[in-house]
Amino acid sequence: MKFGQVEHPEEVDFKLPPVSSDTIKLLNQYKNDQPFEVSVGCAKWNKADLKGFYPRGTKDELVYYSQQFNSVELNATFYNSPSKEQVNTWKEKTPADFKFFPKIPQSISHYSRLLQTDEKVRAFTDAIAFFEEKLGMIFLQMHDNYKPKDIARLEEFLKNFPKGMPLALEVRNEEWFANGEIAQSFYKLLEDHGVTNILVDTAGRRDMLHMRLTTPIAFVRYVGANHPSDYQRLDDWIQVIKQWRAAGLQKLYFFIHQNIEVESPLLATYFIDQLNKEFDLNLRGPHKTTLF
């Protein structure tokens, strides 16, 4: 993941912003005694990217990956909308508790820019529905140059998105965050449609750490800098998640990227260990002796 990459990460202030009071207010509406649902994983299971993660002789990368982690951020669907047969194959290879988080194809988000996409969306969601109980959440990532002037188009897309399909959204253009009035309109739009607002923690775009949740679900895309500070940054996230959970957070979806992806399983394993300790969870993760 090259988005937000910087040449000198040691010069970046990685301190997390304070949690939005609006986020706390929203979460308070959902406070209950339900178990904390947590999914942590990498962006992909491709052997070329995660070189060294798979033991010699591994015959099926997804089978092995899904035995180590409980979820994956499925970026493969961004490049090609999968068939129902492909989705079913992925589903059948994984444990009962495994979750997929597929990205909406670029043919919808980037090429069509949400215009006249009903048939493409229907084909995608009809296939994705075959994940059944293993579908975590679909996510839509807009192009860097998709600006607030097209918010009406976004509203129409969200209004028509198939009901019952959990959806998260990531916007990247700076204009969404630079103006408080625009940002508030955007957050309200997501709240009104029950869409989860994605937070991105990456070195070169600290403005995407808006810390504003729009559902009782936190969907975080964490991009390490292949730098020692990556671990301290994850420790800081534990403190934020504690605050959210105390306020009423129901679910956490946390996916770890690296500019050089080979280190992603190491970071994910560390983070899983911290979550298990802090929240008395039993999330599975690779045993350290199996990594590299």
Rank of each mutant, 00 (worst) to 15 (best):
N160W: 10
P228D: 10
K288S: 03
A268R: 01
N70G: 11
S107M: 15
I198A: 02
Q250L: 09
P35M: 09
F254M: 07
V240Y: 11
S21G: 11
N46Y: 13
L16N: 04
E37K: 08
G164A: 13
Y30R: 06
E155R: 15
F139Q: 02
K251F: 04
Y187R: 01
E11A: 15
K2M: 11
K163Y: 13
N197M: 03
L26V: 02
L158C: 04
T269W: 00
K91A: 11
D97W: 09
R153Q: 11
L283A: 08
P18A: 12
Q141F: 01
K31E: 06
S83E: 13
L281N: 05
Q116C: 09
Q250W: 12
N70Y: 05
E174S: 12
Y54M: 12
Y30P: 03
L158E: 01
N173Q: 10
D22E: 13
V87H: 04
K134V: 07
I138L: 12
P82Y: 01
E133S: 15
L291S: 06
Y253D: 06
I128Q: 03
A76G: 08
V262D: 02
E181L: 13
H8N: 07
A168H: 01
F3V: 04
T94S: 11
L199M: 11
T94E: 04
E263K: 06
L209D: 00
R233S: 07
W45N: 00
K147W: 04
R172Y: 00
K288N: 10
W176P: 01
R212W: 02
P166T: 07
F255K: 02
